Deep mutational scan, measured.
Amino acid sequence: MQFKLIINGKTLKGEITLEAVDAAEAEKKFKQYANDNGIDGEWTYDDATKTFTVTE
């Protein structure tokens, strides 16, 4: 399945997509990506659109 991450950071904004088996795997990958890029914020997930959002 394809999942999307919307980044609303203080210095980094944008979207990325990835393939994952389920939402838990996608969340783990997205949070690792955010951590690697210094993004720390409030996370939400919309199951209907398979979209994660992180807002700093």
Rank of each mutant, 00 (worst) to 15 (best):
M1I: 12
M1W: 09
M1Y: 11
M1N: 15
M1G: 11
M1E: 15
M1K: 15
Q2V: 15
Q2G: 08
F3A: 01
F3V: 01
K4W: 13
K4F: 06
K4R: 06
K4I: 05
K4P: 00
L5S: 01
I6E: 06
I6V: 15
I6L: 15
I7H: 04
I7V: 07
I7Q: 02
I7R: 01
I7F: 15
I7E: 01
I7M: 10
N8I: 10
N8E: 10
N8A: 11
N8K: 10
N8L: 14
N8C: 06
N8R: 12
N8Y: 10
G9C: 03
G9D: 03
G9L: 15
G9P: 08
K10W: 06
K10I: 08
K10Q: 11
T11A: 11
T11R: 06
T11N: 12
L12E: 07
L12Y: 13
L12I: 11
L12D: 07
L12W: 15
L12G: 07
L12T: 07
K13N: 15
K13T: 09
K13Y: 04
K13H: 11
K13M: 12
K13F: 07
K13P: 10
K13V: 11
G14M: 10
G14V: 12
E15A: 13
E15S: 06
E15W: 12
I16S: 06
I16C: 04
I16V: 15
T17F: 14
T17V: 15
T17I: 09
T17R: 07
T17Q: 07
L18N: 04
L18D: 04
L18S: 08
E19Q: 12
E19A: 08
E19Y: 13
E19I: 04
E19G: 05
A20D: 07
A20S: 07
A20C: 04
A20V: 06
A20G: 06
A20E: 13
V21W: 07
V21H: 07
V21L: 07
V21P: 13
V21G: 10
V21C: 06
D22M: 05
D22R: 03
D22T: 14
D22G: 07
D22E: 10
D22V: 05
A23Y: 14
A23D: 05
A23S: 13
A24R: 09
A24I: 06
A24T: 15
A24H: 10
A24P: 05
A24M: 09
A24F: 10
A24N: 05
A24K: 08
E25L: 05
E25H: 12
E25V: 13
A26D: 00
E27S: 12
E27P: 00
E27M: 13
E27L: 15
K28Q: 15
K28H: 07
K28R: 10
K28N: 08
K28P: 03
K28W: 13
K29I: 07
K29F: 09
K29W: 09
K29Q: 08
K29N: 05
F30D: 00
F30G: 02
F30M: 07
K31M: 08
K31A: 05
K31E: 03
K31V: 15
K31D: 02
K31T: 06
K31N: 05
Q32E: 05
Q32Y: 07
Q32I: 15
Q32D: 07
Q32H: 05
Y33R: 03
Y33L: 05
Y33W: 14
Y33V: 13
Y33S: 02
Y33Q: 03
Y33M: 05
Y33G: 02
Y33C: 03
A34T: 08
A34H: 01
A34L: 06
N35R: 08
N35H: 11
N35S: 06
N35Y: 13
D36Y: 14
D36Q: 13
D36E: 12
D36F: 12
D36V: 15
D36M: 14
D36L: 08
D36P: 02
N37M: 15
N37Y: 10
N37G: 05
N37P: 01
G38C: 05
G38N: 09
G38V: 07
G38K: 14
G38I: 05
I39S: 02
I39R: 01
I39N: 02
I39Q: 02
I39L: 09
I39P: 02
I39W: 06
D40E: 04
D40M: 14
D40Q: 10
D40C: 08
D40V: 11
G41W: 10
G41Y: 02
G41D: 01
G41L: 02
G41P: 01
G41C: 02
G41H: 01
E42D: 14
E42M: 07
E42R: 15
E42L: 10
E42Y: 14
E42F: 15
E42Q: 12
W43A: 01
W43M: 05
W43Q: 01
W43R: 00
W43V: 02
W43G: 00
W43C: 02
T44N: 11
T44H: 15
T44Q: 12
Y45T: 01
Y45D: 00
Y45N: 01
D46H: 09
D46C: 05
D46A: 07
D46V: 13
D47Q: 07
D47K: 12
D47S: 15
A48R: 04
A48F: 14
A48I: 10
A48G: 09
A48P: 15
T49C: 04
T49S: 12
T49V: 09
T49W: 05
T49H: 10
K50W: 11
K50D: 04
K50I: 05
K50P: 01
K50C: 03
K50S: 14
K50M: 08
T51A: 03
T51V: 15
T51W: 03
T51N: 03
T51S: 11
T51H: 03
F52M: 02
F52L: 01
F52V: 01
F52Y: 13
T53G: 05
T53V: 08
T53F: 15
T53Q: 06
T53K: 11
V54D: 00
V54R: 01
T55I: 10
T55K: 08
E56N: 08
E56V: 05
E56S: 13
E56I: 09
E56C: 04
